[in-house]
Amino acid sequence: MEKLINDLKEQIIEALSLEDYSVEEINADEPLFGEGLGLDSIDALELIVLLEKNYGIKLNDPEKGKEIFKSIRVLAEYINANRAF
């Protein structure tokens, strides 16, 4: 799980252009939206693309996003349970 969390941090930094952050600075339990990393709605769309591209997970229900994008740890748990590859 810790490796997946680290991979996710790297992928999120890259995909969302969070150049002010390093992997070490991102807390896996902090909220992704609102506070924490302060992501916005475009970032949410980018995360949906990332899930499909890197893990073969298609998120068809936007409401699901609210649940699984709570934090990187929650996202990693969801990927572990649903990944296609």
Binding site: A15, D43, E46, V49, K53
Partner: peptide, 9 residues
């Protein structure tokens, strides 16, 4: 086919 929303805007 993975268009980037962040680029598209």
């Amino acid at each position: 086919y993975f268009p980037s929303p962040a680029n598209f805007v």
